[in-house]
């Protein structure tokens, strides 16, 4: 039997399952340890120890009963973002330049679109694992006001992950080499992590800084996650957050397809 062309993009992407499963089998042990240990360290250091110095007044903490309960959703959303950056920067450079894996994939009946689709699927699996573990690690710390909210926060992380994954993938796919990654981490990831409302209410920021913080995708993810775990769900605000993240994910998708196609189909 010789090969066949896939009948639709999903069927094409599904043909990459064995590739990603092989990659996963090779790396899951290391990532399982980090995705368990990292949140635990953050929760203990920032939430329990640092939080011990902070007077927990629910009015000043967006309704959280403790500082730990305030930052737990922030850390969860940050974990989703960090996982995405880890999967869509250096690994993408490797596949497009160092190992040229994408070139072997598209020499087969598969196309650029299907290759990206499959990789987004893999990123979602990674985020689902690390955020799932995170939720379990935090559960005993009594930071969730409701179980329903905590469960609903899980798919929010997947959406937030996609909103980061498609544009960051696009950025990485078009870079000539890896040197901008250091800058992307220092001037992108870290400021997002520190100033998007994970560690303090953005209401504490002055005028334009607050506007800036509220324009970041991570803030939308953090705020949406927090309103779920603190059981202070507001449908209209939530709708804005979801819409923002969906639009970002969709725009990022088209940009990613455009950038990788331009790089590979010449």
């Amino acid at each position: 039997m010789s090969g066949t062309a896939p009948t639709n993009p999903l069927a094409g992407a599904a043909r990459l399952t064995d590739y990603w499963a092989t990659v996963y089998r090779r790396t899951w042990k290391g990532s399982a340890v980090t995705s368990f240990v990292a949140p635990l360290f953050y929760v203990v250091a920032m939430g329990v120890l640092l939080g011990g110095f902070i007077d927990a007044e629910p009015d000043r903490l967006e309704g959280a009963a403790s500082y730990l309960a305030f930052i737990a959703p922030g850390l969860l959303a940050s974990q989703a973002m960090t996982t995405v950056f880890g999967e869509t920067t250096y690994p993408v450079m490797s596949m497009v330049k160092w190992q040229k894996t994408y070139f072997s994939m598209t020499a087969s009946p598969l196309s650029v679109r299907e290759v990206i689709l499959a990789q987004m699927g893999f990123v979602l699996v990674r985020v689902a694992m690390s955020c799932g573990v995170f939720l379990l690690v935090m559960a005993p710390f009594d930071v969730f006001e409701s179980w329903v909210g905590a469960l609903a926060a899980f798919p929010v992380q997947l959406l937030l992950a996609l909103a980061f994954a498609t544009p960051v993938f696009a950025l990485s796919a078009g870079l000539a080499d890896e040197s901008p990654f250091a800058l992307i981490y220092r001037l992108g990831l870290i400021p997002l992590f520190l100033f998007s409302g994970a560690f303090f209410p953005v209401a504490n920021l002055d005028g334009w800084m607050q506007v800036l913080a509220k324009a970041t995708p991570l803030w939308h993810g953090v705020d949406l996650t927090r309103m779920l775990t603190l059981d202070r769900f507001d449908p209209s605000t939530a709708a804005v957050h979801v819409a923002y993240l969906v639009v970002l994910a969709v725009l990022g998708w088209f940009w990613a397809v455009h950038r990788l196609t331009k790089r590979m189909v010449v």
Partner: peptide
């Protein structure tokens, strides 16, 4: 094996 799967061939 992984490459063969790209062609839609059974495992």
């Amino acid at each position: 094996v992984v490459y063969g799967r790209y062609f839609g061939l059974p495992r």
